[in-house]
Amino acid sequence: MFVVTLTYLTDLDRADAAMADHLAWVDRQYADGVFLASGRRVPRTGGVILAAGLDRADLDRRLATDPFAEQGIAGYEVVEFVAGRVAEGLEAIREG
């Protein structure tokens, strides 16, 4: 499982201009079953994605196709972890 943090590298006007394309890309990741949750950071300095069901190389390939990455709008930090404990109802995301 991965926690991905996006940090804007440009002003919000550029992020807003590319947001529709970014959200279409996010929708494709959900359709592929690899994104579990996503949203804006507070304050609005970027976003956060929870991803699973893929390896790091595949995740990196997918992140590189995000319009935010292609246009230099956001940088990405990826943290991999093993969910050893989860809340009731989320057992399917626990690994190992």
Rank of each mutant, 00 (worst) to 15 (best):
A51Q: 01
A20Q: 12
R28V: 05
D27G: 01
A37M: 11
G84S: 15
W25Y: 12
R28S: 11
G47F: 09
D32P: 01
W25N: 07
A69V: 03
A52P: 00
I49E: 03
T65H: 10
D55S: 10
D21F: 02
L54A: 03
D21I: 02
E80Y: 12
F81T: 06
M19C: 11
E77T: 14
E77A: 15
I73W: 06
T65R: 14
V78E: 04
F35E: 01
L36R: 01
P43D: 10
R56Q: 11
F35S: 00
L59C: 10
E70F: 00
F68G: 02
G72S: 10
L23W: 09
W25H: 11
D27P: 01
E80T: 09
S38T: 14
R41C: 15
H22A: 09
R28W: 05
R41W: 07
R85K: 15
A83H: 08
L54S: 04
D55T: 07
E70L: 13
A69Q: 09
A20N: 12
Q29I: 02
L36T: 00
A31S: 06
E70G: 06
H22D: 10
G84F: 13
Y30G: 00
V42T: 10
R44W: 11
D66M: 11
V42Y: 13
R28Y: 04
E77F: 07
Y76N: 09
L23Y: 06
T65Y: 02
G39N: 13
F81N: 01
A69N: 08
D27V: 00
L36F: 03
R61W: 12
V48Q: 06
R40L: 15
D32W: 02
G46K: 07
A31Q: 05
L63A: 13
I49A: 07
G46H: 08
R40T: 11
D32L: 09
D60C: 08
A52D: 14
L59Y: 08
A52V: 00
V48T: 15
E77K: 14
S38P: 07
Y76P: 04
D32T: 00
T45F: 06
V79A: 15
R56W: 09
V79K: 13
G39M: 12
A51H: 03
G33T: 05
A37P: 02
V26Q: 09
A20Y: 07
A64R: 08
D66K: 04
D58T: 15
D27E: 06
T45A: 13
Y30M: 03
H22G: 09
D60M: 11
G84N: 14
A57P: 10
R62H: 10
A64S: 12
R41V: 07
Q29W: 01
L63E: 06
R62G: 03
